[in-house]
């Protein structure tokens, strides 16, 4: 469905991605894990049209995304839940949802979709006409996911969905992801929270300093002896520390 090959992105003289290749098959949940500064958000930006790569390709369902603007990419079926949620805090919850459907014109279907989202996320229904900036962190994350889903994506990108949230709220977010998966939405997830990412995904890539260090099914990776070294850049981390997210 999505094929990234040899992707290179630099900011000035600093290389953020040095030839990253990965693929996501239809219906899969794929996670990209890696420490801070590994290039995870840059990868997301490159797929969604936020940065122009220096080399490589990003192909979605047979068409290259590289020369398309962000709007066209959304229209083709890719939505992003960005790092830090970035909901429109001065808009109401309802308006945020409507904005999520900006690329669509089917008014009736949009209204029905909003209704469906409110069914999935009852917390949002109670706060429908409140400015989104007043929501709690977990509610904002739900809103960001609902907003992205309103574009009716076939591939949903999530950038650090658990960042800055309390463990209970993280549980909720991951339950939502599991449900989306059961609905057949393909998901590409970027996480620092290794434990969570491996638990929810079919396959995982380890990204470190701009390159893919390891890849495999999530089950394989958990067993792989080199896994910690690939993730942390050095061996000998105690087993117990693995689940802790190094934020």
């Amino acid at each position: 469905m999505l094929a990234v090959a040899g992707l290179q992105v630099s900011y000035g003289s600093i290389a953020a991605l040095r030839g990253v290749s990965l693929s996501v098959g239809s219906g899969e949940v794929v996670s990209v894990i890696g420490p801070n500064g590994a290039g995870k958000s840059t990868l997301m930006a490159a797929i969604t049209g936020g940065v122009t790569p220096r080399g490589g390709s990003v192909v979605f369902e047979g068409t290259s995304l590289l020369s398309l603007g962000p709007k066209r990419i959304v229209q083709r079926g890719i939505s992003l839940v960005p790092e830090g949620r970035r909901i429109f805090s001065s808009l109401t919850v309802h308006e945020n949802l409507k904005v999520g459907a900006s690329t669509r014109t089917d008014r009736a279907a949009i209204a029905a979709d909003i209704e469906r989202m409110l069914g999935h996320f009852p917390a949002l229904r109670e706060r429908l006409d409140r400015p989104a900036g007043r929501l709690s962190g977990g509610e904002q994350q739900q809103l960001a996911i609902a907003r992205a889903l309103l574009a009716r994506p076939r591939l949903l990108l999530l950038d650090e969905p658990s960042l800055g949230l309390a463990p209970l709220v993280v549980d909720l977010v991951y339950r939502i992801l599991a449900r989306l998966r059961s609905e057949g939405i393909t998901i590409l997830l970027v996480e620092q929270n290794v434990h969570r990412a491996l638990a929810v995904s079919d396959r995982t890539y380890v990204l470190r300093t701009g390159s893919i260090e390891m890849q495999g099914t999530s089950a394989e990776l958990l067993q792989a002896p080199r896994f910690e070294e690939a993730y942390f850049g050095f061996a000998g981390m105690k087993r117990g520390d693995r689940g802790a997210s190094p934020t």
Partner: peptide, 24 residues
């Protein structure tokens, strides 16, 4: 209006507005 709401969204966070598919 739909367009007015999109404009307010763009006023708050232009980059994010683009990411939800609002044409800059």
């Amino acid at each position: 209006t739909r367009f007015g709401i999109q404009m307010r969204a763009a006023a708050e966070d232009f980059r994010m507005a683009q990411l939800v598919g609002i044409g800059a």
